[in-house]
Design a protein around this nucleic acid. Sequence first.
DNA 1: CTTTTTTA
DNA 2: TAAAAAAGG
Length: 342
Amino acid sequence: MGVNLSSLTEPKTVELSELEGKTVAIDAYNTIYQFLSIIRQPDGQPLCDRTGRVTSHLSGLLYRTANLITSGIEPCFVFDGKPHPLKMAILAERKERREKAADEWEEAIEEGDIKKAFSKAQQTSKMTPEIRESSRELISYLGLPMVDAPSDGEGQAAYMCSKGDVWAAASQDFDSLLFGAPTLVRNMTITGRRKVPGKDQYKDVRTEVIDSKEFLESLEITKEQLVDICILMGTDFNPGIPGIGPKKGLKLIKDHGDLEHVISSKSYDIPLYQDVRDIFLKSKYTDDYSTTSSEIQRDKIIGMLEGYDFSKERIEGTLDRIDVARKNNRSKKSQRSLDAWF
DNA sequence: CTTTTTTA
DNA sequence: TAAAAAAGG
């Protein structure tokens, strides 16, 4: 599920309101997957309509997006395109993991172990074509821009950020940094508390901003070296060396300079490492996109979500909040451009 | 996850 | 009034 570099970062935490007026490229797959994983009943059952269609992602998208708009943030959803051939191995691995977890979920229910059931159920989360299409339908009715990446969505988001078309790439993964995004936002949520997996503990979850330049300077490495560290750790495109995480990877690359020297010094076998480097450093992207939002289609949203058994009262309340926020945002935006003019 | 309801 | 618990679909 992407590289995890959290142990190497000292993230700057911000309030959502501090991101007012900023356009953010959201990793759609990452966000939807998170909703599918977390929005569940205590026994692990996802939210569903009366016909059994999963609705967890629609609930998450509606309420989270409403909050982002309320904070004056302009979301732009970036969807993954065709996966790189080197990603097939991890996709197959994930499929196997999902199938195993489905069996273990059932077992846990039989044993009456609710905690275990929830955790196993989370691991069964799968992005189906129905979930992808219903997400796109809702996002389009919300009037929010969508971008179709030629390949990896994080690569596309990074490109858009480099160009300055968006202020940051938003994802829980750090991959957009490897793809060259100047700014990454994590935990772009309203909730301040999240359960620690497997434990009865909670920790504060704050929105984090990671500036790529500052991050690399603090570690005293280049972007190319960061990619090499992650190849040692393992990415979605290669398995990595067992036992090497961020700390050891950083030390090895700093001691030897680059992956070639680490490989020859330690006799590691990392086939196709140059291809993995190219995925991140020469990623595919498209210029065929827009980041501007259009009018919200209120009736379409109500019609759609009522069909998924959402309460009309709740939908309307949320849409009212969005309307108020959109009006405020527009007047503030025109005020900002007026100020800039004079 | 986010909202709503219940509890202290 | 705020924190905890439950519900949402």
